[in-house]
């Protein structure tokens, strides 16, 4: 008996060891060009439509309970007229050594073979541990079971679980779309092609700031963009090894030039 327990424990510890899955078949990666992103929020609504995110109303919003798997952070700095505004879309970073995975007492969040940070709804008991461990604040909790009035419920995506009260959720990189692409690839006995998987946010992005693909494929767009000298990752100092790569925004240093001093 104790032997089995020991074995299970070891196996589970493996899951939590950073870099356990180094050999991914696919290494899904998103590259976000902050110089292209104009903060228009199209991705946010596209995500709502694709992933059955509920709306919670004004009161719940004021308690920070709104559901956004992807959100746009805005930083407004400086004083009139030298104002600098910066936008950054933030979703689950799918960290390869994710803090949230260390915390969950029921293993409802773990890292899978494709380098994705998984959230299993039917295993989640809602301890909120992952959300407190997450440095990016991307996890959202179902405080209630939210229902759409008829016939708005007819829009719900049948490929995505409708979550109920007490469950934590977050961006999945549109796993349902990855699955459709993999399914098609398997039918044709090949690997998923570059550009075949397009998450909802990437699909709708008007400026083309978001790019998604398999970084293991050296010919893919993300693999090329990931080598950009502008690359950085969010809060890299935390050693979370995220799968989302940002490209630096090009902008003048604030206060470096005042108006009237040009030329």
């Amino acid at each position: 008996m104790s032997k089995i327990v020991k074995k299970v424990k070891e196996r589970l510890r493996d899951f939590r060891r950073p870099g356990y899955y180094k050999e991914f078949e696919y290494n899904w990666t998103m590259v976000i060009d902050l110089d292209k992103c104009n903060g228009c929020e199209a991705c946010v609504v596209a995500c709502h439509a694709e992933n059955n995110l509920p709306i919670v109303g004004k009161d719940e919003c004021s308690k920070s309970r709104a559901f956004n798997w992807i959100r746009i952070e805005r930083y407004v700095e400086g004083e009139f007229p030298n104002v600098k505004v910066k936008f950054i879309p933030i979703m689950c970073q799918h960290c390869n050594s994710a803090p949230c995975e260390l915390g969950c007492p029921v293993y409802a969040t773990y890292h899978n073979q494709d380098g994705l940070n998984v959230q299993v709804y039917n295993r989640c008991v809602g301890t909120f541990t992952c959300a407190t461990y997450c440095p990016y604040d991307v996890r959202r909790f179902n405080w209630f079971t939210y229902k759409w009035p008829e016939p708005l419920d007819q829009q719900l995506n049948p490929d995505v679980t409708v979550r109920e009260m007490g469950v934590m959720e977050k961006c999945t990189f549109c796993i349902q779309r990855i699955r459709v692409a993999k399914d098609r690839a398997k039918d044709e006995n090949r690997k998923v092609r570059d550009g075949e998987v397009v998450p909802a946010c990437v699909q709708s992005c008007p400026t083309g700031a978001l790019v998604f693909g398999d970084r293991n494929d050296p010919k893919s767009r993300v693999a090329k963009l990931a080598k950009s000298p502008r690359r950085f990752r969010l809060l890299e100092g935390l050693n979370t090894d995220p799968s989302v790569i940002y490209l630096k925004r090009v902008m003048k240093k604030s206060g470096s030039k005042k108006h009237g001093e040009h030329g």
Partner: peptide, 11 residues
């Protein structure tokens, strides 16, 4: 393949 991964059946 990936048959024991949670996300194979739960999404």
């Amino acid at each position: 393949k990936n048959g024991r991964d949670c996300w194979t059946c739960h999404i």
